Amino acid sequence: MPDNFAGRLLEWYDQHGRHDLPWHHNRNAYRVWVSEIMLQQTQVTTVIPYFNAFMRRFPDARALAEAPEDDVLSHWSGLGYYARARNLQKAAKTVMAEFGGEFPQDQDKLESLTGIGRSTAAAILTQAFGKRAAILDGNVKRVLARYHAVPGWPGQTSVLNRLWEYAEQHTPHDRVRDYTQAIMDLGAMVCTRTRPQCDSCPLQADCTAYARGEATLYPGSKPKKAKPEKTTWMVILEDSQGRIMLERRPPSGIWGGLWSLPELDPAFGADELQDACERKLGIACETPQLISGFRHTFSHYHLHIQPARLRVHGSHVVADSDNLRWLHRDEALTLGLPAPIRTLLTDAEQAALL
């Protein structure tokens, strides 16, 4: 059957699509790859300044591969999902070691790189090399799920496989680079998650969900689970030189590899923090000064953070190491910090305390 899905989409893109994004300039596989990883779970407007700063510091795979991890994480700080940054650097090292610094023009080889899945590999092939490959990011899933009224949550294998079939079916052999950008743009700008602008959509005439008046019912939602609530103490330890202690988190897990404030068991009462600091860190402290707590939400739980500031008695007894550092606040802010910790250390009220 003739399919004018791509033709209508390309006509719309020529008039209304995004043609001047930073990764469209000096286009190559490295720039496309970094943009695709940044755009996972993150909107274009948020990504643009991060992408530009990242390119200035790490203009190619070699620069990224050879950079200190702290530098990479610092340039990622605020984007969230920090495993993406660590995976970027790991993949860059592989590109240098196994592919001579050049990204392979092969789907399977691209997918062998850490952090690159089927859709990201296809985006690199189409955007950087002009090769035909079907993509299926979040925006594309939404467009196809509505157009074909595919029931169910795309996280389910059967639903995902069906969407991949449609993605392959609609991907044209000509202008594939423009097509992949067009379908992503349509999902981001018109076929939005809430309040889709169906009257402006070039696919409206035969969109099944629109015909049924059910556009917002597709794609199906992930089954909801109540997020668990967790609590932690975060201590701002200040030594006699006005420096604060930062602790590097483990390489895997939440905020993996980033620098953060030392944490203490939430079972401790405020009057037990001095003893807890001495037992865990070997540091004698003065009476804690509590700071307003706040909640930070992760993808799978809520974390209630209760900060407390404690001055260290005399000269601190814990030396700098690979995982502990004493830094002035301005120095600390140059490291890769989780967004809520950066906010805590830069908040005007807290800054006055420090």
Rank of each mutant, 00 (worst) to 15 (best):
I291D: 01
R249A: 02
P22K: 12
R311F: 02
E229D: 12
G100K: 11
A91Y: 01
A67W: 15
D178E: 12
D322E: 15
K224C: 03
M184R: 02
P202I: 11
L281T: 01
C201W: 11
E11D: 10
A276E: 12
A97R: 09
P2A: 15
E229L: 13
H304K: 13
P151R: 06
L264G: 01
L327N: 08
C285G: 05
H148K: 15
A226N: 09
R279I: 11
P196Q: 04
Q289N: 13
L144T: 10
R27H: 06
R212L: 14
W259H: 09
I124W: 05
M96H: 01
D71V: 11
A91P: 04
S112L: 12
A128D: 09
L246T: 09
L237R: 11
P22R: 14
K230M: 10
R62G: 10
A92P: 07
A348R: 14
I37V: 15
L258V: 04
I283V: 15
M96W: 01
L110K: 12
T45Y: 00
K109L: 11
R56I: 11
A145F: 00
L353E: 11
V235K: 06
I254S: 06
A211C: 12
A134P: 01
A91F: 02
A97H: 05
F129A: 02
M234K: 02
D14L: 07
A267L: 12
P251G: 00
Q289M: 07
A29Y: 13
N161Y: 03
K224V: 12
L136V: 02
F298T: 01
T126W: 00
L144M: 06
L186C: 04
K280C: 03
D178I: 00
Q181Y: 03
L64Y: 04
L246D: 06
R329P: 03
R18D: 13
P59F: 06
H296F: 14
